[in-house]
Design a protein around this nucleic acid. Structure first.
Lengths: 183, 183
DNA sequence: ATTATATATATCAGCCTGATATAGATACGT
DNA sequence: ACGTATCTATATCAGGCTGATATATATAAT
């Protein structure tokens, strides 16, 4: 997916600053996608100069200016049209899997050459991480207003459900089978 | 994980050419990690000039020369030592999740703006892909000699089992809940 | 009082990917 | 039999993206 489509898509969920978009990539989106500041800021500037987003400069007392971007109608049109062509490209490419770089899997793959102590640490930290992530995805209590609205979105429900099941399955498997890696 | 560690690790499973290493990344490893030719070939050249791997030039009748690399004892030492420092870095970084770019999840996230027809195609292709992958991971019949040896490795058993369960879970969830994305 | 962490934007070196070049072999349709 | 596409095999490189760094202030922790 083009970075423009993605930034516009996130702004379609509500006005945000570049910093806040980055926070989304480091929080709830971190298991699906990420973009760096070096991509986000130039993309937002580019979208703004082409009127796909508008920008309100919040001169915060003593903090650096916060530039809050809002998607325009023109931007919404571009996003929808881009989304369609991005989906078409996804189909055309025949590449339906995800692009993954998993340090954990590589360490498991070569675990034969790792000291047992280190392997234990790796496994423990991985399980701990998965459990924390699972809690975040399952948690249904009160949260900041804007996120609460997002929760009602069908797509968010679908994704949270899928992520939860996958994390649960992963945790159960690792806890049950990690002994297999030692003899 | 450093590209050198990874290439040495794969060569520790048996002698291979750069092309065959790439094939591993596009086949069984594709859901965990990948490196491009532009990284693999220079890395192998570098490893060779530092005597971490040796190279046998197979002058195939009429095909381009095939350079088959074999890991040396020096290379095996480097790999083990690198593996330990890579694992330590994994722990130190506190980043226990995987680096993922999932076009599929983004399309689901913004599915509200996608025509139903396109969403159906995306879902169908995804499920089809997952089912094919699942078959590959579960399949237990006869395979080329070298792969058969690998199958007996504890780490490979662990990974195949984990991948199978995750794919099964993913398929079941998508088939059961995809209707949620439409009203 | 000092250090570390968080907010906030911006830039950039350097690495990696995706594309392209080269070149013969084999499979495939017609 | 002939053109075409795909596979084997190595190599290079432009361009894009990441991770690091710079800048500046606020707040929390020690």
């Amino acid at each position: 997916m083009k970075k423009e489509t993605l930034c516009l898509g996130l702004l379609s969920l509500g006005p945000r600053s570049g910093y806040e978009i980055k926070q989304m990539f480091e929080g709830p989106l971190s298991d699906f996608y990420s973009l760096s500041f070096g991509t986000i800021y130039p993309t937002l500037n580019n979208l703004q100069s082409n009127k796909y987003v508008s920008c309100k400069q919040h001169t915060q007392s003593k903090k650096p200016d916060k530039k809050v971007y809002t998607i325009t109608n023109k931007g919404l049109d571009l996003m929808k049209s881009n989304l369609l062509s991005d989906a078409a490209e996804y189909i055309r490419s025949g590449n339906f899997g995800d692009q993954i770089k998993s340090e954990f899997f590589l360490l498991v793959l070569f675990s034969k050459y790792l000291p047992n102590e280190m392997l234990d640490t790796v496994m423990n930290e991985r399980v701990l991480y998965l459990k924390q992530k699972l809690e975040q995805f399952k948690y249904d209590g009160p949260i900041p207003s804007e996120l609460a609205a997002l929760r009602k979105e069908k797509s968010i429900k679908f994704i949270r459900g899928l992520a939860s099941t996958l994390f649960e399955t992963g945790i159960r498997y690792v806890e049950k089978n990690r002994y297999l890696l030692k003899e």
